[in-house]
Amino acid sequence: MQRLLVIEDQLKLRRNLQQLLEKEGYEVVTSGTGEDGYYHATTEHFDGVVLDLSLPGRDGLQVLEDLRKHGSNVPVMILTARDSVDDRVDGLDGGADDYLVKPFAHAELLARIRALLRRGRGGAVTMLRAEDVEIDVILRRVTRGGSEIELSQREYELLEYLLRHKNTNVTREMLSRDVWKEPGGVMTNAIEVCVNGLRKKIEADDATPLIRTVRGVGYSVRDRS
């Protein structure tokens, strides 16, 4: 059984994360402070660490820096409300292997943890690609064929989500819950308007269509075989 350490100072979220991860079959140890988390991380074996940044005492970046100085190669995912480019760069440059912003979808968190544990200490995923479209997730920069494309925040979030779920069908329910943060209903009209706007930008000048409509389901982005 793989062991995870969750360092998170919000009690309710810490308990929710523990329950979610234990349900997936992980052994979970939790800590509410940077000092306590660092102690566990340096005195016990873990396959991965989920680390908040805003911690009492020793903050998350300091914990991460000290772990790397200590020689620890444990894979670390930062889970935080800090969503600026500078924060992401600081976290990844500080030694994190992935960076996920709150609020987050449970399915995405679990998928990222699985990927983190599969690759071990192999570097963070900072680029997403499909066809000739690339997203730099740190700089939030989108290019197609090397040319930068300006997107609104929502269009960017939609495209990033579709590329993270490349080669699978993404339902409108998933988009409503995870991108629009509206778990109680499906934002069909808003989603369609955003998809159409994104298509006009990403598929301009007779570029190969990237976003496919899956009738009765939602959308998908797939690489050509």
Rank of each mutant, 00 (worst) to 15 (best):
A207P: 02
E148R: 06
D205A: 04
L117C: 07
K23F: 12
P75D: 09
V76Q: 02
D206G: 01
A81F: 08
S152P: 11
S176L: 06
E27G: 10
E65F: 09
D178E: 08
T188A: 08
D97T: 06
N73C: 10
A107N: 13
E108D: 09
L110G: 08
R121S: 14
L13Q: 13
L117M: 15
E155G: 01
L21C: 12
E192W: 05
R88Y: 11
E24W: 06
N167A: 04
D59I: 04
A96H: 04
S225C: 06
E65H: 13
R141M: 07
R164Y: 12
E173K: 11
K12V: 15
A107S: 10
E65G: 11
V28K: 10
R215I: 14
D136P: 07
G146P: 09
Y39L: 12
N167C: 01
T33S: 11
L5C: 12
D97F: 06
V195F: 11
H45M: 12
V29T: 10
K201R: 14
Y39M: 11
D47Q: 15
S220Q: 10
N169R: 08
R88S: 06
Y26N: 09
L4M: 12
R224G: 08
R68I: 08
M127R: 13
G185W: 14
V221R: 00
R212F: 03
H106K: 12
R14E: 00
A81G: 15
R58D: 06
A107I: 05
R88M: 14
V186K: 01
G95W: 01
S147Q: 15
V217F: 03
L5A: 13
D178T: 00
W180P: 02
L64N: 03
G94N: 02
L53P: 01
R141K: 15
E44R: 12
E24N: 09
E157N: 14
D36F: 10
T30S: 15
I135D: 05
E27F: 13
R224C: 05
M77I: 15
G216C: 03
S152N: 14
Y156K: 05
V195E: 08
Q62H: 08
V170Y: 03
R68F: 11
V50S: 00
K23Y: 08
V214H: 01
V85Y: 08
S176V: 09
L92S: 13
L116I: 05
T42L: 14
D83F: 02
